[in-house]
Simulated scan of single mutants.
Amino acid sequence: MDKAWMSAREPELPWMAAEYELLRDQVRRFVKEEIKPCADQWEENGFIPRSILRRMGALGFFGIRYPAEYGGAEMDSVASTVFAEELGRSTYGGVADAMLVHADMASLYVFHDGTKAQRARWMPGIVSGEAITAVAITEPDAGSDVKAIRTRAVRDGDSYVLDGTKLYITNGVHADLYCVAAKTDPAAGTNGITMFLVEKGTPGFSVARELDKLGWRSSDTAELVFDGCRVPTENVLGAEGQGFYSIMRNLQNERLVLAAMSIGMAEAAIDMTVTYVKTRRAFGGVLWDMQAIRQRLAMLSARLEASRQFLYATAWRMAADDDCLRETSMLKAICGELVNEVAYACVQFHGAMGVMRESAIERVARDARVLSIAGGATEVMLEVVASMS
């Protein structure tokens, strides 16, 4: 969306500072030059080439939040929000998803909960794009209800033995390092879940199958199986029994960046639809001449801008280390629903072209659908908000 009108506003909002806008320009250029020309092929392949992930690492996109000692840029949650919004604007939800899971979801567990030795071993490769990460929490009978996971981890000498199944895991096929949630004490409730680092190739760990999805086609998604998978005690992430609290803390950031991705995708959808209806001729004029269409797009744009300002205000608070559980839950609910509403309207205004696979708006509509589910379904988010009211 055109933000030129903001340039005259004084004082400038803090999340419009020069360093964030420079990052925005860099990501937008990368999307234009290195993602869009190739992403249709990635959609067909079902994954993103490692060369692109390493290129993103070399450009610093995977180290936005991390310290310079690991090759990071030492920025904050506002920068992550800019990154996620611009990836969403690419209109390739699978690309955005795979990159954000690595940069702002899975790798957070290593950085926040890892020991000094774990961080020293893994963070440089995470930042460079050499070591891609996934987070394995969801199971066949446990999605947003984390406490319901059944994967077990039993202590055996200087190791833990993991048994169980994980489902719908982004980057699950091609990741190098998995942050896995398992129950170490089933009787302890929220105090009985522990996070583990599991490397690709560990005996007893396998990718059972690659999953076929409606949208996010260029991100690989897998079912994982742990069958007597033995990991050393030094692979415990954080303290035993504290995994649930680690998950809840990191989910705030996950929901923030998913909201930002939703905003970016909705912005792109409205932009391309306004362009289309201003040129599509019908009934002796163009579709833009029809009041119902242009007012509908204007209202969606207004709601989108309001949500965007809430998004960045929350990101700014998170950068100041405020607890924003209520706000991130609100954002996830609002933005996940709004991008679907925008996509529906934009497909409608494209007419038959809107359902053609050659049309970007068709892909946006498929990819948007996941955003009201992944990272916490809308209904779960609203229950979190209600519980805090």
Results as ranks from 00 to 15, higher is better:
Gly114Leu: 10
Val274Asn: 01
Leu100Tyr: 04
Tyr245Asn: 11
Leu53Gly: 10
Ala84Gly: 07
Ile137Asp: 13
Val110Trp: 13
Gln118His: 04
Leu304Ile: 00
Glu234Asp: 14
Asp40Ser: 15
Ser128Trp: 09
Val339Cys: 13
Asp113Leu: 15
Glu69Gly: 03
Pro49Arg: 08
Glu234Lys: 09
Leu311His: 05
Pro11Arg: 08
Phe61His: 13
Ser90Thr: 02
Thr279Val: 15
Arg366Gln: 05
Gln309Cys: 11
Val207Ser: 00
Arg89His: 02
Leu22Ser: 15
Arg209Phe: 00
Val347Glu: 00
Ala368His: 09
Asp145Pro: 00
Ser307Val: 00
Asp104Ile: 07
Ala106Asp: 08
Val257Glu: 05
Gly93Cys: 02
Pro232Val: 07
Gly157Asn: 03
Gly114Met: 11
Thr328Gln: 02
Ala58Gly: 11
Ala106Phe: 08
Trp5Cys: 09
Val286Phe: 01
Phe205Arg: 01
Asp271Phe: 10
Thr151Gly: 12
Asp141Leu: 03
Ala73Gly: 12
Gly201Ala: 09
Ala352Cys: 09
Phe349Val: 01
Val198Leu: 06
Pro186Gln: 07
Pro232Asp: 07
Ser218Ile: 07
Asp227Thr: 14
Gly157Ser: 02
His112Asp: 15
Ser128Glu: 12
Phe47Thr: 07
Thr115Glu: 12
Cys179Trp: 05
Thr91Pro: 04
Ile270Glu: 03
Thr194Lys: 11
Ala134His: 11
Arg9Lys: 14
Ala182Asp: 06
Ser359Leu: 12
Gly71Ile: 04
Gly71Gln: 03
Phe111Pro: 04
Thr378His: 01
Arg363Phe: 02
Gly72Asp: 01
Trp122His: 09
Ala259Leu: 02
Tyr160Pro: 03
Thr190His: 07
Thr279Gln: 15
Pro140Ala: 05
Lys32Trp: 13
Gly157Tyr: 01
Val180Asn: 10
Val82Gln: 05
Leu23Glu: 04
Gly143Pro: 00
Val127Phe: 03
Met290Tyr: 06
Ala374Thr: 13
Arg24Gln: 14
Gly46Arg: 10
Asp158Tyr: 01
Thr151Lys: 08
Ala117Glu: 15
